[in-house]
């Protein structure tokens, strides 16, 4: 049965978190069911303050083969990383 049901990705914003985080996926036939299922599967222990559901087919993801092209160039350029500054002690979150 579930093979006929589209896959949806679920994002939850927790009470403590500022942004929605990907928590997993569920099957559902429509947006209302996706929202209900996300609630029932992923927020049973009071985890959530807000839910997003997105059809998995709508997510564009990077190809594993492009990993080097996309991410390696930034590795050998140390000046891209802000490691040469002294952080003033009054700054709490950097």
């Amino acid at each position: 049965m579930s093979k006929d049901w589209p896959l949806w990705e679920v994002f939850i914003r927790s009470k403590h978190g500022l942004s929605h985080k990907h928590v997993g996926s569920i099957h559902a036939t429509d947006a209302e069911m996706a929202m209900n299922n996300a609630r029932d599967v992923y927020t049973r222990r009071n985890e959530g303050a807000s839910i997003w559901v997105v059809p998995s087919a709508q997510i564009v993801s990077s190809a594993p083969g492009d990993k080097e092209m996309l991410f390696d160039p930034s590795n050998d350029k140390v000046y891209r990383h802000p490691t040469f500054y002294e952080v003033p002690s009054d700054v709490e979150n950097m």
Partner: peptide, 12 residues
């Protein structure tokens, strides 16, 4: 239950 999601929902 017919699918996992329904099982969780029914249990809730």
């Amino acid at each position: 239950a017919p699918v996992l999601e329904e099982e969780m929902a029914t249990g809730n």
